[in-house]
């Protein structure tokens, strides 16, 4: 496990996470993430060669419901929650470069 996170790694992660950071934040997170990952490094002491992962604890699997269509009674209300909307549609910036 890597222990020191560099500023350029922080910038790369921030890009993946769609998170704009200031230079001060990049410095701060490089330090803090390194410290936290240093602490987390102790997990490597645990022998997990023959251990399965736990992704859920309920023991439920393939939870199904009837495949029926339910009406949505408030589409206008839902669209109105968007910061910008027009004619019942959510408005966004251009998706493709011109």
């Amino acid at each position: 496990m890597a222990e020191k996170i560099s500023n350029s790694e922080v910038q790369k992660i921030a890009q993946l996470a769609r998170l704009e950071l200031t230079d001060a934040e990049v410095d701060q997170y490089a330090k803090e993430l390194s410290a936290i990952l240093g602490y987390i490094g102790q997990l490597s002491e645990v022998d997990t060669k023959n251990t399965a992962i736990t992704s859920q604890v309920t023991g439920l699997s393939n939870v199904m419901r009837e495949d029926t269509v339910d009406a949505c009674d408030n589409p206008e209300e839902l669209v109105a929650l968007a910061p910008e909307h027009k004619d019942g549609l959510i408005k966004v910036k251009a998706v493709f470069d011109a």
Binding site: I40, L43, T54, S55
Partner: peptide
Amino acid sequence: YYQKAQKVRTI
């Protein structure tokens, strides 16, 4: 990281 943590979670 994530898988390792999920395995430790099992233990």
